[in-house]
Design a protein around this nucleic acid. Structure first.
Length: 604
DNA sequence: GTGAAGGGCCAC
DNA sequence: AAACGTGGCCCTTCAC
């Protein structure tokens, strides 16, 4: 296939091309780079495509004229990229937006992302793939050859086939967008798509901002854990081998403590009744009777810390910024939740010793805000249950308020046990908890657990009714939707009872969890706009929590701005239930300032 | 040697 | 009557 293109290598040609492109309301957009990380490589090519032509801008040709001249000659390009009224269609636009922001110094606005659109349209179908080649095949029936993607984009002169490849990728975008727009409309997914597209630049900026890690503090903690792990490992080896002393005449027998198979054999040798599952919550009850079980749990905790939250995290620090730039997947789960990796900043242990390592740089502060009980508020809104809503409207401790209603006592007379039962149920309801699981976590017998749940649903009648009727609808229609309209198609075998109830739990939870994600994404857009000309920078998000870093003097204002954005976003989706956002200003990612350095080890 | 699957555990 | 949802990362085990 012959692909036409125009190579742009000087300021006049660029100006003319941009003038042409501006006559289109939708243009295909792509970039080619010499590396995957914008901190490391060069932005080599920028490609645009309209109905008539494909333009390839070789940025290396613009770099020759000195910085001021380069900036001036590239001005039309920057204006085009940041102009939200010109739609730029790109696949995984976050990638291109990062390079544009970092190397050209402007935002990418007016995005239609065919990668995100593909995910939104797939509606949770995990069989579908979402690369550009997959999308081109699925939506347009076109076979794309991606072999040039990994070619040498740093070559002095790009080859004909490289240029044709680059032009073709941009050219296909408009076609793809047309097909996807129709599909989005057919499934009423336009609002979700707009929400995702508008969230792209905030996430791009957050990845570029990075989160600062105090390596000194991290290493100190690491050494304490290392010592604890070595001690626990040594003691555990001794305890396990004592039961099988005859196995080795030359000291104790070494077993792999990370192998559950070997550990189980050793425990059985000691005459310990080992549960089928070796999970901590199963082993915990045995720890009192068998010290070796307690030691195993101690070892496991230290080993987990060492491997998941040890030296490896330090390797993610980008030398040029001294910060961690994790990867955030905007649609990380079919619910619409984010996922995060390399490293996962959403699973840093809550323990103070870890969180205090994530800091504001000198002269800065962190502003930390989170939604209070956002998922339960969403459930209250969906169900329309007056008493459930009242527990939020009253503004008092939600779990105590629900306990008061469930157990029919005055709020001040709620016992700790009653509050704990209510709290566990409140959280469990969102996941579709059953009586047996509730009993296991509270220590209630099966029948007591059932009675307590009956009491709970007897109190919140509309909530019960909502969960039943909505569950029924989910199974009949096989679709779940969040407040923004995000869609999940449920696939299950209606002949299998467990498959049906599992689909019910999945769908009900998706609507709540996904609406929470909708709200966060909307908040990030509002925030992005309102902090644009301030010192505040987005540095991390954890599902219902947002963390900014800003100049110390701006912290009060940033906290106010952040609270306003988060509140306004939630109010776009919640009509009856009040929203609560808690925020505070700190030097690190902890609630209160650290007074003295903790000297104790792991404890125990 | 490499990769998938499964167990376990961190977060919300 | 009802066996709690979403991720990522590390390790071992096992098949190729």
């Amino acid at each position: 296939m012959e692909v036409f293109f125009q190579l742009i290598e000087d300021a006049d040609a660029l100006k003319a091309a941009v003038g042409e492109l501006r006559r289109s309301n939708r243009i295909g957009f792509d970039t080619e780079t010499t590396e995957l990380d914008p901190h490391k490589g060069e932005l080599r090519l920028v490609q645009f495509s309209d109905a008539r032509n494909n333009y390839l801008i070789d940025l290396r040709k613009f770099a020759a004229g000195g910085e001021t001249a380069t900036a001036e000659s590239l001005a039309p390009l920057r204006e085009l990229l940041s102009d939200a009224s010109v739609m730029k269609i790109a696949h995984n636009a976050k990638f291109d937006a990062k390079w544009v922001r970092h190397h050209l110094g402007c935002e990418l606005n007016g995005i239609f992302d065919t990668y995100l659109a593909s995910l939104i349209i797939a509606a949770g179908d995990t069989d579908r793939r979402h690369s550009l080649a997959d999308a081109a095949q699925y939506f347009c029936g076109i076979e794309l050859d991606k072999s040039m993607q990994v070619s040498d984009w740093s070559a002095a002169e790009l080859s004909r086939s490289q240029l044709e490849y680059a032009a073709r990728d941009a050219a296909i975008m408009r076609q793809l967008c047309e097909q996807m727009t129709e599909r989005l409309a057919n499934d009423a997914l336009e609002r979700t798509a707009a929400l995702e597209f508008e969230c792209l630049m905030p996430i791009t900026q957050m990845e570029l901002n990075g989160f600062h890690l105090d390596t000194g503090r991290w290493r100190e903690k690491l050494e304490r854990v290392r010592a604890a792990q070595e001690k626990a490992a040594d003691e555990l080896q001794n305890m396990l081998s004592s039961g099988v002393a005859q196995a080795s005449l030359f000291g104790r027998s070494e077993i792999n403590l990370d192998s559950n198979q070997q550990v189980t054999d050793a425990l059985l040798g000691l005459g310990i009744p080992v549960p089928a599952s070796m999970q901590a919550w199963q082993l915990q009850p045995l720890a009192e009777q068998y010290p070796v079980i307690g030691k195993l749990l101690e070892y496991r905790a230290a080993a987990k810390s060492m491997t998941s939250f040890g030296e490896n995290i330090l390797e993610f620090i980008e030398p040029s910024t001294g910060r961690i730039h994790a990867d955030f997947r905007q649609i990380g789960a079919p619910t619409g939740r984010f996922s995060c990796s390399n490293p996962n900043l959403q699973q840093i242990p809550h323990e103070r010793d870890y969180r205090r390592c994530f800091t504001a740089e000198p002269g800065n502060k962190l502003v930390i805000a989170d939604y209070s009980q956002i998922e339960l508020r969403i459930l209250a809104e969906f169900s329309g249950d007056e008493r459930f809503i009242d527990a939020f409207v009253s503004g008092q401790d939600f779990h105590a308020a629900t306990a008061s209603q469930v157990f029919g006592v005055r709020p001040e007379d709620v016992t700790d046990d009653q509050r704990t039962f209510a709290k566990r149920l409140n959280f469990g309801i969102v996941y579709g908890i059953g009586a047996s699981r509730f009993g296991l976590m509270t220590g209630l017998s099966q029948s007591d657990a059932e009675n307590t749940m009956r009491r709970y649903f007897g109190t919140f009648r509309r909530l019960d009714e909502y969960l039943r009727s909505e569950g029924k609808r989910l199974i009949e229609e096989r679709t779940a939707r969040t407040a923004s309209g995000r869609l999940l198609r449920l696939r299950f075998d209606e002949n299998l009872r467990e498959a049906v109830s599992s689909a019910k739990r999945y769908g009900l939870n998706m609507q709540i969890q996904g609406t929470s994600a909708d709200i966060l994404k909307r908040a990030l857009r509002l925030l992005h706009d309102s902090i644009a000309r301030t010192s505040a920078r987005l540095v991390n998000i954890v599902h219902d929590e947002v963390i900014l870093e800003c100049a110390a003097g701006d912290a009060d204002q940033a906290a106010k701005t952040l609270e306003e954005a988060m509140t306004a976003a939630a109010l776009e989706y919640l009509a009856r239930v009040p929203v609560k956002v808690d925020s505070h200003i700190a030097d690190d990612w902890t609630k209160e300032p650290v007074r003295t350095q903790a000297q104790s080890g792991l404890g125990g």
